[in-house]
Amino acid sequence: MRIVIVGAGQAAASMAARLRAGGHDGPLTVIGNEPTAPYQRPPLSKAYLLGQMGLDRLTLRAPDWWTDQSIALRLSETALGLDPVARVLRTDRGDHPYDALALTMGARPRRLSAAMGGDLPGTHVIRTLADVDALAPQLRPDARLVVIGGGYIGLEAAAVARKQGLQVTLIEAAPRILGRVASAETADLIRALHQAHGVTILEGAAISRITGTDRADGVALTDGRQIPADLVIMGIGVLPETALADSAGLALDNGIATDLSGRTSDPAIWAAGDCASIPHQGARLRLESVGGAIDMAECVADNLLGQPRRIALKPWFWSDQYDAKLQIAGLNLGHDHVVTRRGQGDHAASVWYYRQSRLIAVDALNDARAYMIGKRLIEGGISPDPALIPSLPDLRTLLT
Results as ranks from 00 to 15, higher is better:
residue 33 N to V: 03
residue 281 Q to P: 00
residue 159 A to R: 04
residue 33 N to P: 03
residue 339 V to M: 10
residue 26 G to W: 01
residue 26 G to V: 00
residue 188 D to E: 14
residue 62 A to T: 14
residue 17 A to K: 08
residue 234 M to Q: 15
residue 360 I to R: 02
residue 50 L to V: 00
residue 352 W to S: 06
residue 293 A to K: 05
residue 173 A to D: 04
residue 233 I to C: 14
residue 60 L to A: 11
residue 212 G to P: 11
residue 194 H to D: 05
residue 171 I to W: 03
residue 162 R to H: 10
residue 17 A to F: 01
residue 9 G to D: 00
residue 358 R to A: 12
residue 41 R to L: 03
residue 346 D to A: 15
residue 253 D to C: 01
residue 50 L to T: 00
residue 107 A to M: 11
residue 352 W to K: 04
residue 101 L to M: 11
residue 362 V to R: 02
residue 268 A to C: 12
residue 266 D to R: 03
residue 282 G to H: 05
residue 126 I to L: 15
residue 111 R to W: 10
residue 219 V to T: 08
residue 390 P to G: 13
residue 221 L to F: 14
residue 305 L to C: 13
residue 58 L to K: 07
residue 239 L to W: 13
residue 2 R to Q: 11
residue 339 V to W: 11
residue 182 A to G: 08
residue 154 G to W: 00
residue 211 T to Y: 09
residue 385 D to S: 13
residue 82 L to S: 01
residue 270 W to K: 03
residue 271 A to K: 06
residue 269 I to D: 00
residue 344 Q to C: 12
residue 370 A to F: 11
residue 277 S to H: 06
residue 66 W to N: 02
residue 359 L to C: 03
residue 285 L to H: 07
residue 272 A to W: 04
residue 299 C to A: 12
residue 189 L to R: 04
residue 256 I to D: 02
residue 300 V to Q: 00
residue 259 D to R: 02
residue 196 A to P: 05
